[in-house]
Each structure stands twice: as C-alpha cells, then as structure tokens.
C-alpha cells in the first residue's frame, strides 16, 4: 500500500458516496446515466468474485463489499426508487457496443485462460470505458449539475492516482500488470477533456455547460 493507491481508493469511495448522496438528498437522478451505473455494478461483480476464493486483507475485503453494495444501491435508486426522475431519453448510449467488444478482448488478451481471470480482465477493460454513457449524456444535454461534476472528478482522479501507484510499484516492488496499466491509461485519457472543463469552469464557480 502506498499513498497513491490509498488516496486513489478513497477518491473512488468519495465518488461513489457523492453520487449516492446526490440522488438521495435531491430525491432525483436527473442527469445521471443509469447505463454507466449498471456497467459499474457489472464491473465490481465480475472483478470481486475473488471475495469467495481468496483473502488479501480486511481493508481489501471491506472496500470490495462497500463498492459492490453502493453500486447496487445506486442502480436501485435510479431504476426503482427514483425511476420517475430518470432521464432515459438522454441516456441513449448503446452499451452493447462496449460490452461485446470488451468481452471479446477479455477472452483474447488475458493473463490466464480461466473463468475467474477472464472475468477479472473483462471488468478491467469494461471499467475503462464504463463512464462513456455518462459523458455521452452530458454532451447530449450540454450541461451537468455541479455535484455531478464533483462525482466525475473524483472518479477520474481515482484511476489517475492508480497510474502513479503503478509507477511506484514498478520502481519499488518490481510489480507491473500490463492489462491494468493499459486499461488504466485509456480510462484516464477519457477524462482529460472533462478535467479541463472542471478546472476552467467548475472550480471558478461556473456551472459546467457546453457550447451549443
């Protein structure tokens, strides 16, 4: 455990909690892509099946349980409890264009050709693109609530901090996982445009709105 990984995990946790609280307090999931949230629930489920097979640490297990629990709670709030506020018309990204190629890639490029390992690889690839329906929704409506941008910033920072973690682990532990690193790079690059808007607009007190 190093500082980049810990702050990355906490940033990830903060993102998840911010989103849950935003929906719960406003009693609305307007502007949130339910499709992205379903993809994240699939990501956590596929990746953390090792909860049943291996124990790493109390920290590791509890974070996994919290991430999975929160992901399903978010999906429940969007598709059941506050379904009336869900903006399905603007959440029109075709997720099969992500899931199918990512599934194929996981079968072709993985560390070990075993069911659990392929599911882990699938989750890593899928996570790197799971935010696309949300970014697509924002580009379609042309705006995002400020609290939604805080969520996206924390979520983007999480994988960015993991990149530093991987550099650290490579130098000090000789550890590297090429699949995670390449997918993490892709994931971080997808947020670059958003990071720019967050710094130039949201941090200066303006609402995030895109030119028509």
């Amino acid at each position: 455990m190093n500082i980049f990984r810990l702050t990355g995990d906490l940033s990830h946790l903060a993102a998840i909690i911010i989103l849950l609280l935003k929906i719960w307090k406003s009693r609305s999931c307007a502007g949130i892509s339910g499709k992205s949230q379903i993809l994240f629930a699939i990501v956590f489920t596929a990746r953390y099946l090792d909860l049943l097979t291996s124990f790493i640490s109390v920290y590791n297990t509890s974070m996994k349980v919290i991430y999975i629990g929160c992901a399903y709670a978010t999906v429940y709030l969007i598709y059941a409890k506050f379904r009336a506020t869900y903006d399905g018309n603007h959440d029109s990204f075709r997720v099969e264009f992500l899931v199918v190629p990512v599934g194929g890639l996981a079968v072709l490029i993985n560390h070990t050709f075993s069911p659990l390992e392929i599911l882990w690889t699938f989750s890593i690839y899928l996570e790197s693109v799971a935010i696309l329906p949300q970014l697509f929704m924002i580009s379609k409506t042309g705006e995002a609530e400020t609290i939604t941008t805080h969520y996206l910033f924390c979520l983007g920072m999480y994988r960015t901090l993991y990149l530093f973690n991987w550099v650290w682990r490579f130098y000090f532990e000789g550890f590297f996982d090429m699949i995670a690193i390449v997918a993490g790079l892709v994931q971080t690059v997808l947020y670059c445009d958003f990071f720019y808007l967050y710094v130039t607009k949201v941090l200066k007190g303006k609402k995030l709105s895109l030119p028509a």
């Binding site: 090792d50 590791n60 974070m63 996994k64 993991y162 000789g174 995670a180």
Partner: peptide
C-alpha cells in the same frame, strides 16, 4: 512481474 497470487488492488 505479474502477481501470480491474485489481484491485490481494487
């Protein structure tokens, strides 16, 4: 080196 003992990251 890939960690053969499993994935220890989240």
């Amino acid at each position: 080196e890939y960690n053969i003992y499993g994935h220890d990251e989240l």
